[in-house]
Simulated scan of single mutants.
Amino acid sequence: MSDVLGRVLVVDDDEVIRQLIAVNLTLEGFEVETATDGQDCLDRVLDVQPDVVTLDVMMPRLDGWATAARLRSEESTGHIKVVMITARAQDDDKRRSRGIGVDAYLTKPFDPAELIDVVRDLALSSRTG
């Protein structure tokens, strides 16, 4: 087994945030790929085979909720852990995410240490079970 903690697909239309998340996870030992929006995520997810996908909610073409719902609905991607990372902190948004089956919900601005802990826990649970 390699020292890689897991593979993460980071999806955000904001390049600065996408890179911030990717750098933090890479430094922690994850293998990271990025996508610019929900459609890009769906186009690449089978090639990347991530343990965890981090999703922004507000993105062009396909938003995070629609992307998460599509990931959950497909047999080939239904097992992938999903973390929403969004500026939308309303209870309705959190409820909507839970209804879709999102595994974790972090609001921006997020604490990089908390993000790393959440992704590590989800990647580990993905690999063990």
Rank of each mutant, 00 (worst) to 15 (best):
L106H: 11
D111L: 14
D40K: 07
D92W: 14
D93F: 08
T107R: 12
V32C: 03
Q19V: 13
L106T: 14
K94Q: 14
A89W: 15
M58C: 10
R72M: 08
D47P: 15
G78P: 05
T67R: 05
E74V: 01
V118R: 04
L42C: 03
L27R: 12
T86A: 06
D47M: 14
R44Y: 03
L115R: 04
A113P: 10
R88L: 14
I17S: 12
D43N: 10
A89K: 12
T107I: 14
P60A: 08
L62R: 09
M58T: 04
A104M: 11
C41L: 00
E75K: 01
K108E: 03
G29E: 12
V119E: 03
R18E: 09
V53C: 01
K108Y: 00
L62M: 12
K108T: 01
Q39T: 05
G101H: 11
L71K: 05
T77A: 04
I80H: 01
L42G: 04
R18M: 10
K94W: 10
R120N: 08
D37S: 08
R72D: 06
V83P: 09
L25H: 00
D121G: 06
K81A: 12
I116R: 04
R120P: 07
R88Y: 11
M84Y: 03
N24G: 11
R96Q: 15
L55W: 02
R72L: 10
V83R: 13
V118K: 04
L55E: 02
D111W: 11
D47A: 15
R95H: 07
T67E: 06
